[in-house]
Design a protein around this nucleic acid. Structure first.
Length: 209
DNA sequence: ATGACGATTTACT
DNA sequence: GTAAATCGTCATA
């Protein structure tokens, strides 16, 4: 982005690509959350994972599973898919591909860039020590909590929403990225080993393991 | 109606 | 390293 340019959102065309391209392409972009009171929270996306749809055993849509929970995975690319897991955490995904094609990218970590105090408040309750800047949005559950993302944002269209959206960032060269298997999908057999996780090599905000 | 299970996080030995 | 927290969702009956 050049000086004086306004931030731009990725096009619908971008989100309609396959999840591998979207996962790779979102690294370095900024995720923006505008709270009900108008405060803007934002962070640079530093870690993503691709879930490839009906053939991917780790995906919620494996073998065409379609339920109330994962319904928004079947919406068109650019839709938010927010699910609740482990009885306490929300996770935010970006749906990819065309309508009826349930692929998605899980957003796993951000480097906070705006509204860090508010993020810290959101993270505060339940933890003993306040999270440092690096840890505010480290891990999908923490990211969602810091940005006040819950099921009310499930199904939101990131291409048009004023509440939750993405802004294009500077291009990230491949040399700054690392690619590994996904986290927490050991149950997925051969799919567990596929390198479908991307993260910024030098970022201190990336989740562990 | 019941039971098993998480695309996680934290705390603790 | 292991375990606990915690509950919506889904498959089974």
């Amino acid at each position: 982005m050049r000086r004086g340019d306004l931030p731009r959102r990725p096009t619908r065309r971008f989100f309609r690509q396959d999840a591998v391209r979207v996962a790779r392409g979102l690294i370095g972009a900024t995720l923006v959350r505008v709270l009900p009171d108008g405060e803007r929270l934002a962070g640079i996306i530093v870690e993503t994972e691709a879930y490839l749809g009906v053939r991917d055993r780790a995906s919620h849509a494996f073998e065409g599973r379609r339920t109330r929970r994962n319904e928004s995975m079947y919406a068109r690319g650019g839709t938010a898919y927010v699910y609740f897991t482990y009885g306490m955490h929300y996770c935010l995904n970006v749906v990819c591909g065309g309508e009826g094609e349930p692929a998605a990218v899980l957003l796993r970590a951000l480097e906070p860039s705006e509204g860090q105090d508010r993020m810290r408040e959101h993270r505060a309750s339940g933890t003993r020590r306040p999270a440092g800047h690096e840890a505010l949005c480290r891990g999908p559950g923490n990211l969602a909590r810091a940005l006040a993302v819950d099921r009310s944002l499930d199904g939101v269209d990131l291409c048009t929403s004023q509440t939750l959206f993405v802004e294009i960032g500077s291009p990230v060269p491949a040399s700054r990225l690392r690619r590994t298997p996904r986290v927490g999908v050991g149950y997925a057999g051969a799919w567990a080993g596929r390198r479908l996780r991307w993260f910024m090599r030098d970022s201190r905000c990336v989740s562990g393991r």
